[in-house]
């Protein structure tokens, strides 16, 4: 069995802040995820729940800097939101700009469940 760090940390991570916007066509959710590489984020939708999990890595350590103090949370994060709509089957697009992850949910036909977007 492969060790899956995402499964292991369920419920233990720091939660990034999120804003939810209503659009005529659906919903936009904005996550505060500065310093996170897009490849380290995963967005899942199941029913009316949208879940964002991932890892924030401290890239500065590669430069050989050493912490004097630390307030930014690193490592795994997770955020689960209940939306007043059914995300399953909706069209979900993600965009990562200026440290913000923007998830757009547009109502559409019921598609495959548990859509994975990267």
């Amino acid at each position: 069995m492969k060790y899956d760090p995402y499964e292991e940390i369920h419920g233990l991570d720091f939660s990034p802040s999120a804003d939810v916007y209503r659009m005529p066509t659906g919903w936009v959710v904005k996550f505060d995820l500065a310093g996170v590489k897009p490849k380290d984020v995963r967005v899942e939708a199941r029913g009316s729940v949208i879940r964002v999990v991932g890892v924030r890595r401290d890239q500065f350590v590669e430069r050989g800097y050493r912490h004097h103090s630390m307030e930014i949370s690193y490592s795994h994060f997770e955020r689960t939101l209940h939306l007043p709509c059914v995300c399953e089957g909706a069209t979900i697009t993600t965009e990562y700009t200026d440290g913000l992850l923007i998830v757009t949910i547009e109502a559409g036909e019921t598609g495959e469940s548990n859509k994975r977007v990267r």
């Binding site: 890892v55 401290d58 590669e62 050493r66 912490h67 490592s75």
Partner: peptide
């Protein structure tokens, strides 16, 4: 701690 913080995941 210093060693742990010096990693990306701080574990």
């Amino acid at each position: 701690i210093e060693s742990a913080v010096a990693t990306e995941e701080k574990e």
